[in-house]
């Protein structure tokens, strides 16, 4: 009997293949990219995006959506570039408080039965306003240790790749292997059953949101480590990028079916797509549109594959 990839494997295989194909295309267009420095440059900015994607994934696991990801990461970046650099204790307190707010939001959304879209959209303004208050114009500087971390040069493999692999493994462990991850995904798949088995759905959702906050905070910090300075609008596009990354990586909006490794691959692919488009001399005008188009195409392909699988199952 030949080996046919199961549905789960397929879901991760597709983004991995697309990344490989895209990478090959980039190398063919720009052979100089095929070096240590080249790879690092290509995937540098993917690290904070990958973290934000994992954060969004936590929230999508419990069937919600976070439309404030972009402004929140920008806010964190502003805090990092200012407080964390000058008054580390205050900076850490602020960031911890922000994670606490995320957990609180998760609780409120569950208890009051609110649509997460509207609540997070409202909160996105709050984060945006706070960011503007902290840094009305671009400025600040990254803490030394962050700079050192993001510009480090591990042997053989560039920092960007090391970091991405690390993020993927940690997220995979938390979400797919650990007991908490199982219950979290269970809440996304069949909340009533999880409740009946005696678990506290409230705690699980608060935990999911808190994890999301944590990863988003890391994203903002890493971003500042790379760009050294920050401004209030630095990460606004992370909202769509994070959602697209989860979907590209084989995740679903509802049902609790997500793949952390796929999500990181998705983030890498989206980052690469940007470079790919510029190597193709496509004007930056179209880069935004390309991200939207990629998301639509991936969803369309996924639908076709699903229909095909259903047709086969019926036979």
């Amino acid at each position: 009997m030949s080996w046919r990839p199961g549905p789960e494997t397929l879901r991760v295989l597709i983004p991995a293949l697309s990344l490989a194909v895209l990478l090959a295309a980039v190398f063919w267009l720009q052979p100089r990219a095929m070096s240590y420095t080249g790879l690092n440059l290509l995937f540098n900015l993917a690290v904070p995006i990958a973290l934000a994607t994992i954060a969004q994934m936590m929230i999508m696991t419990v069937n919600d959506l976070d439309l404030s990801m972009g402004t929140f990461v920008s806010f964190v970046a502003c805090v990092t570039a200012t407080f964390l650099q000058s008054d580390p204790v205050i900076g850490i307190l602020i960031l911890a408080g922000a994670i606490g707010v995320y957990a609180l939001l998760g609780i409120v959304i569950y208890v009051r039965n609110l649509p997460s879209i509207v609540v997070t959209l409202g909160m996105s303004f709050v984060w945006g306003g706070l960011a503007v208050l902290i840094l009305p114009s671009p400025g600040g500087s990254a803490p030394e240790w962050l700079r050192w971390l993001m510009t480090s040069r591990p042997p053989f493999v560039p920092m960007a790749i090391v970091a991405s692999v690390l993020i993927a493994l940690v997220a995979h462990f938390i979400v797919m292997q650990s007991a908490f991850g199982v219950v979290m995904r269970g809440v996304g798949g069949n909340q009533r059953s999880v409740e009946r088995a005696g678990w506290s759905v409230l705690r699980v959702r608060a935990g999911a949101y808190a994890l999301a906050g944590l990863f988003a905070v890391l994203a903002g910090m890493m971003l500042v480590g790379l760009t050294t300075a920050a401004d209030a609008n630095i990460a606004l596009r992370y909202t769509l990028l994070s959602i697209a990354g989860v979907i590209l990586g084989g995740g679903d909006f509802v049902g609790g079916r997500v793949s952390p490794i796929g999500a990181v691959i998705g983030a890498l692919t989206l980052t690469l797509a940007g470079s790919f488009l510029s190597f193709l001399r496509i004007s930056p005008d179209w880069q935004i549109g390309a991200q939207g188009a990629i998301l639509i195409i991936v969803l369309a392909v996924r639908l076709l594959v699903q229909r095909q699988q259903q047709r086969e199952a019926r036979q």
């Binding site: 199982v182 995904r185 269970g186 996304g188 798949g189 059953s193 999880v194 009946r196 049902g255």
Partner: peptide, 16 residues
């Protein structure tokens, strides 16, 4: 169905 369709049989056992 009382199981969570997005989990494996093993993981559903954990939930239970």
């Amino acid at each position: 169905l009382s199981l969570c369709p997005n989990l494996t049989a093993v993981e559903n056992c954990r939930i239970d």
